[in-house]
Amino acid sequence: MKAPIIPPTANDTRRTEKFPENQPVSAAQNNQQEVVVDVRHLAKSFGKNKVLTDLTYQLYRGENLIVLGKSGTGKSVSIKCMVGMLQQDSGSLKVFGEEVKDLDEDGLRELRIRIGFLFQSGALYDSMTVFDNLAFPLTRVLKLKDDAEIEKRVKEALEGVGLADAVNKMPSDLSGGQRKRIGLARTLILKPEIMLYDEPTTGLDPITSREISELIREMQKKYNISSIIITHDMECARITGDRIIVMKAGSITAEGQYDELANAPDEFVRSFFQPA
C-alpha cells in the first residue's frame, strides 16, 4: 500500500492549501489547538429514554479520538448528531465552528462532504458493483463527469485499501472485512477532513481488525484526518488512538491516554482495558 489513496489533484485545493503535500503532519505538534468538533452540554432523548444527558468534548485537528462506553450509552447517537442525521434536544454541537443544527439543506450537504462516516456494516450499496459504489460519491457529490478521472480515482482508492482486484465484484460476494475496507475506500474517496468511525473492527477476526486499525492510522498520517473512533476493541484503541474518552450514562466520565486510563483508579474505566 505504497501509493497514496487519493493524491491531491490540481482542482482540489481544499487539502493542499492547508497541508502542502510534503509537509510532515503531526497531530500532537502542529495543530493540537485547532478544534474541529466542539460538543458542549449535548442532550438527546428518544421519548422517555434519555440517551445523552450532558456530553462535552472536543476533537482537535489531526488527532484520533477514541470513544469508549457500554452499549446503549449514545455513542452512535452523538456522532449521528454531527452529520445532522439526528438533532440534539439541547446543548451545542459545532463542526468547523458552525452549529450543525442551524445549517440549512445546502449547508448540511456541504458539511457532509467534509465529513466521512464509516458505518458498522460498511453500508455498501447492494445493487451496485464495487466500482459503482466508489464512483457514486464522485458522480453524485463531486459531480465529476470525466470517466477516465473517475476510473483513476476509484482505482487509487481501492489500491489504498488493498482491494484493487475486487473492482468488479458485487458487495454480496465480499467478506465482512472486505466490505468494511470498501466502505472505508468509498468514504475516503471524497477526501474528508473529519472521519467518524462507528465500530470499525467489530465482528472481524483479530488479524483483519489489526489491518483495519493500521489502515486508519495510515490514513490519519497521510491526510491529517481528524477522527472520532467508536470502538469496543481495545487493540484498535491502542493502535489508532491519540486520546481516549469514556462515556457513561450520556456523559464523559474519564479522559486520557491509553496507559493513563488502563491504570485509572476508577474501576469502571479500568474494566474496559481488562481482557474479558
Binding site: V83, R112, I113, F117, S121, A123, D126, R140
Partner: peptide, 13 residues
C-alpha cells in the same frame, strides 16, 4: 442496512 443513511451522509440525495 444503513445504505440510505450512508448515501445521505455522503452528501448525495
Amino acid at each position: 442496512t444503513e445504505q440510505i443513511d450512508a448515501m445521505e451522509v455522503s452528501g448525495a440525495s
